[in-house]
């Protein structure tokens, strides 16, 4: 009787020990997994930061201005060149273009970012300056718009009707030149993610 009990106890101890160790190893494996995930997370975040910095660097006003001067036949924006809905309509005599201008304006007030962007391209095609649209985008449509950096909007403000008063489409020739340019300027710094991780 006595011996039996001892054997049972020993077996129970062994079983408990095995289970405990298994649990421990499982926990260790999970820990590793968590660590790997954290590392990945960290490195992706780092990459994102770098990309955001790069985006800001490439869309800084200084560069946009330089490129606009080089490739676009537009003049810097200044006072009195901004248009409102009313002034936009006033130059358009036929009903057709009045209606399309109205539609573009309406679209720009949309809360949907995609629609606003779409409207903006249309406005560009119509030769409308989108200066006054910017506050709309910033305040109403997309409160914290980051996709459209303000600097890009600035590039658009260079669009304007030409001095003769006729609607002007975006110049085709320089744009094509821009697209077909063979060499891409090297970024000032590049980043190869992951190299920095060591223990």
């Amino acid at each position: 009787m006595n011996g039996m009990l001892n054997i049972v106890m020993v077996i129970a101890t062994v079983i408990v020990a095995v289970v405990t160790y298994q649990a421990k190893f499982r926990a260790r494996a999970l820990e590793l997994e968590i660590h790997v995930l954290n590392q990945t997370n960290r490195s992706i975040r780092n990459d994102l930061t770098v990309l955001r910095a790069e985006q800001a660097y490439l869309s800084r006003p200084e560069r946009i201005e330089r490129l606009a001067r080089k490739f676009l036949t537009l003049t810097p924006n200044e006072a009195g060149r901004n248009l409102t809905g009313a002034s936009l309509l006033s130059g358009r005599e036929d009903m057709e273009s009045r209606r399309s201008a109205m539609q573009v304006l309406e679209k720009m007030r949309s809360r949907d970012k995609a629609r606003v962007l779409e409207a903006r391209t249309e406005a560009q095609k119509m030769g409308i300056a989108t200066v006054l649209v910017r506050p709309l985008i910033a305040r109403k449509a997309v409160p914290q718009q980051r996709a459209v950096s303000a600097a890009q909007v600035m590039g658009v403000t260079h669009y304007s009707r030409d001095r003769a008063g006729d609607a002007q489409s975006p110049p085709k020739e320089p744009l094509e030149k821009l697209r077909s340019r063979p060499e891409v300027p090297k970024p000032k710094w590049t980043y190869h993610g992951g190299i920095g991780d060591d223990d």
Partner: peptide
């Protein structure tokens, strides 16, 4: 960031 959310300063990782 500036008042419109344009990035003005950030940290990147270097070795």
């Amino acid at each position: 960031v500036d008042r419109n959310g344009v990035l003005l300063a950030t940290d990147i990782r270097t070795a």
